[in-house]
Design a protein around this nucleic acid. Structure first.
Length: 292
DNA sequence: GCAAGCCTGACC
DNA sequence: GGTCAGGCTTGC
């Protein structure tokens, strides 16, 4: 992705990639000693966090929207009520990686978790510290996941339509509202609206069913393409040595203000919707006729 | 100064 | 209850 920051912005495709990595390299292994270097990234007490995750085996890894949960083995002979989950939210610049413990810590590494015999470890890096790690019970995890709407690639036609009904806010805000639809961030919301040819300020509840279905399919398509491409760019990212141009997803509107629309060559415009910049083609995505 | 995700709190 | 503004944070 051609981002000025040089970071991979973790939206659903990156989170999915991280999840797949966790399943390959972490699930089944034991968590040993843990260290937290910056207490702010831990929800609750860092001491409790360290105590609660250490000495457990990772039984599974799950995702809903942009949230990841690692299921940890229970102490006390496997009593399920004692089971804990490690919840990971990458925020804007969070990275979860597996490293040889002997490698020097990179800048902005805020936590490390030893694996098995301690030769390898999980590291959490986050320059802007918007991300959070949390150790919680099943009940707390269900609460967090329960607040999220259906995972964006999974949402059904009816769920999508029912959820739009009666919403007066802009469709762009609706797409980014994790309680409605889990997984979309600013980039893919703009891209999906462009594909569906819908203006970002269109009131969500006024989108006719046919258009809404086009939007739902656009969301799926954009995410699916990105999951495929992020898989590549993520590996490149791991291997890269300051090498630019790896994030080569073909963005259609995001951060292309003033550049020609790939369909009709009209310059892409930018408006602020709910405090976030939104990029769209004024010709392909005309403003809805009845404004409000 | 701007970009982002997520949470909180104010407003109708 | 829905909607939106503000704050957090740092590298460009």
């Amino acid at each position: 992705m051609p981002l000025a920051t040089g970071f991979v912005m973790p939206e659903l495709p990156e989170v999915e990639t991280v999840l797949r990595g966790l399943k390959q390299r972490v699930v089944g292994r034991w968590l040993g000693a843990a260290e937290v270097f910056h207490p702010q990234i831990i929800v609750g007490s860092p001491d409790d966090f360290v105590r609660e995750v250490s000495g457990h085996r990772v039984l599974g890894a799950w995702r809903k929207g942009k949230a990841i949960a690692l299921e940890l083995s229970a102490l006390n002979g496997g009593d399920a009520a004692e089971r804990r989950y490690m919840l990971v939210r990458l925020g804007m610049t969070g990275q979860l990686t597996v490293h040889a413990s002997a490698e020097p810590l990179e800048s902005h590494t805020h936590a490390r978790l030893a694996l098995d015999d301690g030769r390898e470890e999980i590291r959490y890096r986050d320059a802007r510290r918007f991300g959070r790690l949390r150790c919680c019970t099943r009940e707390e995890l269900d609460k967090v996941f329960g607040r999220l709407g259906p995972d964006a690639p999974e949402i059904s036609r009816d769920e999508f339509l029912n959820s739009l009904r009666g919403r007066r806010g802009a469709i762009k805000s609706w797409l980014m509202n994790q309680q409605m639809l889990a997984g979309l961030g600013n980039i893919y919301a703009d891209e999906a609206l462009y594909l569906a040819r819908i203006h970002p300020l269109t009131p969500a509840g006024r989108i006719p069913a046919l258009l809404a279905e086009r939007l739902r399919r656009a969301v799926k398509k954009v995410l699916q393409q990105a999951v495929e491409r992020q898989g590549t760019s993520f590996r490149d990212y791991i291997n890269l040595n300051g090498e630019p141009g790896n994030y080569s997803m073909r963005l259609r509107v995001y951060q292309r203000t003033g550049k020609p629309c790939r369909r009709c060559h009209t310059p892409i415009k930018r408006v602020i919707v709910a405090g976030r910049s939104s990029h769209f083609c004024p010709h392909c995505q005309p403003r809805p006729r009845c404004r409000r």
